[in-house]
């Protein structure tokens, strides 16, 4: 378990009055929240509630239409200059982006590269590591995810679970301070979900990487999270520690949602 963070310290992720619109469709509105360094925060809520959009905003795959996102106090894509919201240069955005990693629902391994090339490509060409150094680290990570023998395999010859484990190793090879996990087990066969969650649990236990997680695996969320945020309609409905969230949620909306995903009788009532 990570050490408790000093609440006075600068949060590693901070959303300030963030709005995200796609045309007329408002996905996130006036969103304020923060994540402290080393915290594991899970976002739950019905589909379309904006959870995945939050991860995509942090990864700069999307840009907020209003408000600010700060990473360790630094603006991510926009800052306020003389009262006006202006976009940062691509170079500035990239500097912050290298501190963030993401694992996707669909793995997104590069099919034109072997497993080891997938993992070492960015450490070598973006971080400037030597090939020997990057390869050593990649083999170490492959060992951690239990795929020592797959270094030279092609992604297409791997099962879904194996591909996702490679994708986790690939994200970790960049030594991110923040790891975003976007429904990483949703595309996997049920019997393989456990092996991937096991690896993520171990990473949570052995590192102090900040994690922002979107998942439908409620037991996993309960086990690894320091905090759970319940979303609905683009806003936070409830922000609580996992025990409170899953056993005694304060809001009717949360109770309804958890009842729907966990089944009747799973939630203790106050």
């Amino acid at each position: 378990m990570p050490t408790p963070t000093d609440p006075a310290a600068t949060p590693i992720i901070e959303f300030r009055d963030v709005e995200k619109r796609f045309g007329d469709n408002v996905v996130l509105k006036n969103l304020d929240f923060h994540v402290n360094r080393g915290e594991r925060v899970t976002l739950i809520g019905p589909s379309g509630s904006g959870k995945t959009t939050i991860l995509r905003l942090v990864m700069t795959l999307e840009e907020a239409t209003d408000g600010l996102i700060l990473i360790d106090g630094d603006p991510l894509t926009h800052r306020i200059v003389d009262g006006r919201r202006v976009r940062l240069s691509n170079r500035e955005i990239k500097r912050t982006r290298t501190r963030i990693g993401m694992v996707f629902q669909q793995f997104n391994l590069f099919p034109n590269m072997t497993v080891i090339q997938n993992i070492t490509e960015s450490p070598i060409h973006v971080l400037g590591q030597s090939k020997a150094e990057a390869t050593r680290r990649a083999r170490d990570l492959l060992h951690q995810v239990g795929l020592d023998d797959k270094a030279d395999a092609h992604p297409s010859s791997l099962s879904g679970g194996q591909q996702q484990r490679v994708a986790i190793a690939r994200a970790l090879a960049m030594d991110p301070e923040i790891l975003l996990l976007d429904e990483v087990t949703s595309a996997l066969d049920p019997e393989i979900v456990g092996e991937v969650l096991g690896i993520l649990r171990r990473i949570a236990e052995t590192t102090d990487i900040t994690m922002l997680i979107v998942t439908h695996e409620m037991q996993f969320a309960r086990d690894v999270s320091d905090r759970v945020l319940m979303f609905d309609g683009g806003s936070i409905v409830e922000d609580a520690d996992p025990d409170t969230m899953f056993t005694a949620p304060a809001h009717e909306r949360t109770r309804k949602f958890l009842k729907a995903v966990l089944g009747e009788g799973q939630i203790g009532t106050r």
């Binding site: 795959l61 996707f104 669909q106 391994l109 590069f110 099919p111 034109n112 490509e121 690939r170 994200a171």
Partner: peptide, 27 residues
């Protein structure tokens, strides 16, 4: 080339030239 491939290169901080040369164009 699937959108997920482009997004993965962003998540790995690749530059546009690097992304095209090593990931997108070969596919």
């Amino acid at each position: 080339v699937p959108r997920g491939q482009w997004e993965a290169t962003t998540a790995l901080s690749m530059s546009p030239v690097h992304r095209m040369r090593r990931v997108i164009f070969p596919q």
